[in-house]
């Protein structure tokens, strides 16, 4: 479960000021050392709140706390809706958690972020769009599964109401008839 050093470096390089870079290196170092507890603490101290949530997402995701990671990604998206990495990350986690409708919302945010971004290189853009399409297809499949589950529940409830209701009515009718026959006898 140790973090990939390449990933850690990439995040460290993402910050622009030298002060922030120094802070981020602290997080990256703890993360790369497998001290996720210290990495989280250090991430809380970052002066850039979006970067802090991005690191929080990264650490919690690596720790397998998917619900926590999702919450971090959502907090980040609230601060920076067109952030290029938070929406794909959130969509990925939502898919892993089986939350299709939520994943679709993040796919929409991702699409908006891509539309607003200035990815100049055509190949990179095409790769992102292809990844987005794959995620969206998975999210739609999950949402369809939810709908099937809901529809199956409704069918089951209908069958129960009809058969159980019919049986109880038959039972009452038979009991009443038996009483009438006895009374006549």
């Amino acid at each position: 479960m140790r973090a990939s050093p390449i990933l850690a470096s990439a995040l460290a390089l993402a910050c622009c000021t030298s002060a922030l870079r120094a802070q981020t290196e602290g997080v990256a170092e703890a993360f790369a050392d497998g001290r996720y507890d210290l990495a989280l603490e250090a991430a809380e101290g970052l002066s850039d709140p979006v970067l802090a949530t991005e690191w929080r997402f990264q650490v919690l995701h690596a720790a397998g706390d998917l619900a926590g990671a999702l919450a971090a990604a959502r907090a980040g998206l609230a601060l920076a809706p067109s952030h290029p990495r938070l929406a794909p990350n959130a969509a990925n986690v939502a898919l892993t958690l089986g939350e299709g409708a939520l994943a679709l919302e993040f796919c929409d945010a991702w699409q908006a972020a891509l539309d607003a971004s200035a990815i100049a290189e055509a190949g990179a853009r095409a790769a992102e769009l292809e990844r987005l399409a794959r995620y969206r297809a998975n999210a739609l499949a999950l949402r369809a599964l939810d709908e099937r589950a809901r529809s199956a529940t409704k069918s089951a409830q209908l069958v129960v109401a009809v058969v159980l209701g019919g049986t109880v009515l038959a039972l009452l009718a038979l009991a009443r008839r038996a009483r009438c026959v006895e009374a006549r006898a």
Binding site: M1, R2, L60, A63
Partner: peptide
């Protein structure tokens, strides 16, 4: 330890 402990160390774990 390398495989298990980092994930267990976060407060939510």
């Amino acid at each position: 330890g390398d495989a298990l402990l980092p994930a267990l160390s976060v407060p939510s774990a």
